[in-house]
Nucleic acid binder design. Structure first.
Lengths: 209, 209
DNA sequence: TGTACATCAGTGAACGCGCGTTCACTGATGTAC
DNA sequence: TGTACATCAGTGAACGCGCGTTCACTGATGTAC
């Protein structure tokens, strides 16, 4: 039985990997069970022995994408002991670069919506939360006076703002920007945002005295 | 023949309005030609006398949404002669409010992607460009030293950042925020961004001396 | 080791549904004389 | 005003395609004795 289970796990891994590649090449809408089955060399119906349904498959691929993104962000801040301010800039740029290099997989993270009533499993939510860690740490160093809740909110805002720039910048719609220009804009805006936030903190502290 | 044309135009208007309502209620994916036909009281096939295909219908609805958004933003800056800085805050908040109140229609603007090869018609692109006008004007007042191109880029970045905050904030995913909290975050971040940008300009000018 | 039996991964045809678009046809409206 | 004809909006059944999921069946693998 062990051998059978092993085989099953291998096939399962192959399925998820094939799904990842398919989304990367053709986008979320290009993912088809029949193509996946052909790709991993099994029948159409066998897919449902490996995975409950397509939703689960998409979440598994999403989880892998988030994991790789996490690694990328970790690498970005580890090189050369940057200041917290520069850390945040690097994280933003690393995020932008990751999005550009994994465009379809990255889009899939946000495009996919569960059918109403079915909710996202815990392990998927957990993966998502991990990402904010990267932003939280430098922010905490920059704003020692802020509470964890405040820092969480700021982290979320910063993330959303950078995400928006990357999302619209990499789209071929409304605005389309060459990557180097986009990186420059993000750098400038992140610095401006941080400096602006620091200035407000100082002013707030002075007013409180 | 005039009477027939009139009737046709009325039906056409009804079709577009029905499509708008349907997207608002059920989202872009909930738009079906059969339901639309029933709604406006004609046969399924008649829809194609009024409109080339569903893509055109979606773009027409999008155009109306952009128009209403444009009006909202105009109203936001006209009340009470705000400073350029506060104008930008008001625009950002008005954008956020509009998105919250027209969630599905607003989403449809960004979700819809033309099938490859078919390109967005001019009138649609034009509608999109008009929006940047609102951001451009206050920015030009704040940064008199910048060229139109630079201002355009800054406008685009500001827009993208605020859009990102609204998009992720109004999503039920990754981050979900009550509207008042979202408005507060946007206000704070827009002010910080602007102040940061001004500070950089001053520093840049000083360095250039 | 050998035999009978149980389990369950794997099969692929078929189900079921949805939906944009087309098309041969109709009938009302308008025109020409 | 009346008649024959043309036009074209409107009809709704049918086409064509796509695709997730199910299910009765098979055959290989493993277990019990």
């Amino acid at each position: 039985m062990t051998k059978a289970l092993e085989r099953r796990e291998k096939l399962r891994a192959a399925l998820i990997q094939a799904a990842e590649q398919m989304i990367a090449e053709r986008g979320l809408a290009g993912l088809k069970t029949r193509d996946l089955a052909r790709e991993i060399g099994c029948a159409n119906g066998a897919v449902y022995n490996l995975v409950a349904d397509v939703d689960e498959l998409i979440l598994r691929v999403g989880s892998r994408t988030l994991l790789r993104l996490d690694e990328t962000l970790t690498l970005a801040t580890n090189a050369g002991e940057p200041s917290p301010r520069e850390s945040l800039v690097r994280i933003a740029l690393a995020y932008c670069d990751f999005a550009a290099e994994n465009l379809q997989l990255w889009r899939a993270l946000f495009e996919h919506r569960m059918e109403t009533g079915k909710l996202v499993p815990d392990w998927s939510v957990h993966d998502q939360m991990q990402l904010f860690r990267h932003i939280y740490q430098p922010l905490a160093a920059l704003f020692p006076g802020r509470s964890p809740e405040e820092l969480g909110i700021t982290a979320r805002s910063l993330f959303s703002a950078v995400h928006g720039m990357a999302a619209l910048g990499l789209e071929r719609k409304l605005v389309a920007v060459p990557l180097p220009a986009l990186r420059k804009e993000i750098t400038g805006l992140v610095r401006a945002m941080i400096d602006g936030l620091i200035a407000h903190d100082v002013k707030g502290a002075a007013a409180a005295d």
